[in-house]
Design a protein around this nucleic acid. Sequence first.
DNA 1: ATGTGC
Length: 478
Amino acid sequence: MKKNKSKAPAKLSADSLLRLGFPSGKPLGTALNIVHTYYKDLPKNHQIELLQDVLDAPDQYQLHSTLGPLALAILAQKEAAPIALKEQQQDYTIYGASGIDEGAFRQMEIAMRLPVARAGALMPDAHQGYGLPIGGVLATENAVIPYGVGVDIGCRMSMSIYDINTGFLSKNTEELKKMLLDNTRFGHTSFKRPKGHDVMDRPEFSEIPIVRELKDRAFLQLGTSGGGNHFVEFGTVDIKDADNEFNLPVGSYLAVLSHSGSRGLGANIAGYYTKVAMDSCRLPQEAKHLAWLDLATEAGQEYWLAMNLAGDYASACHHQIHERLSEALGESPLATIENHHNFAWKEKDAKGREYIVHRKGATPAGKGVLGIIPGSMATPGFLVRGKGEAKALNSASHGAGRVMSRTQAKNTLSKPQVQKHLKKAGIEVLGSDLDEAPMVYKDIHQVMAAQQDLVEVVGVFNPKIVRMNGDEKYMEVD
DNA sequence: ATGTGC
């Protein structure tokens, strides 16, 4: 007999319905009630189909014996006048349009019809997200959109450049692999004894109720990397620009590159304030995930503080990752570069007007601002300097962008195929899975070509030993 | 992205 830890079969959850686009509030509660009362023995996917049918045509279910109340709740919410989107969409600038999917354009067009929207841009790695597309930049006035920032608040890149010859990498591969295994933590694992950090003393951890509840786990997750597309890797960086900010001679250096965010802390802050926003800012169905918080309200100010805390926490995690590796290498870095790409900033335009600039998967690229744009585990990443292009709202892409969904990757790629590819490219990979294989990403060179007006290249990073979430042997090449 | 799930 099949063993199952939980006694009852998994119930259909509110969250899975929200993910399907089910309206929050009364319709959601009614739907769950009905399913758990009348349809609890149906398979989950049938339950979902049933609810989806009502959602698609509520008027046809008004008199239905069991689904009627749901139909009425949906219709009532539709009539409860939401904040209207503007008829006329504001213009926004697109970089690398040929590589961007239709869903991202659709989402951006909706965002540009929000009454609080003032300007926007789509970066060349853009793809469909939740609310605002990934690779979307949106400037609003006095309003912050939790899903315009994204779930992984303050997610960022960090690079340390060392005075170590690149030959060290190939000579000490096994030692460096062990160094990554010992000094980084992915997925649900964390350090037995987390290193303390000043960020844990911040008053927000005691003053904001939701944040207070998240403090203990945040401490346990300090210095960890999470899952998905997060990584820590050793590689080489070729400094191309002789006139660089670090006074580094042109040449190749060993470097550590990390990508991760604010872990459970940011994810829970994002989830909580999105709900608050959706309750207070009712928008039409197609825009509801773009619900905003007025910065003049208590909730808006609270989110702003919590978001900034999550950003600083993500930064602290990167610092600890790099500290541990520096210690293991026995070297202090010659230079460090860091930038976040899921965040909202208060910025001024040329006329001095202040806006809230949301970058959801977009790198700040104001004039002279340094940033890191990674490719994939087997392709170059770029150390860049912003050109301050106003039409791009001082932004650039945050990576290559996906061409293949995670599901599609798992269905179409094979492990031997990816391993062969990695072996040929000379990349060692610990952990990871098919959904992060190099071929799920757009060609980073095309993406960089599409944003020549936004950034200039200071250095090129080539990954060599990569660690991601997952069974550490999974993608390891013999 | 996230110990995802009123």
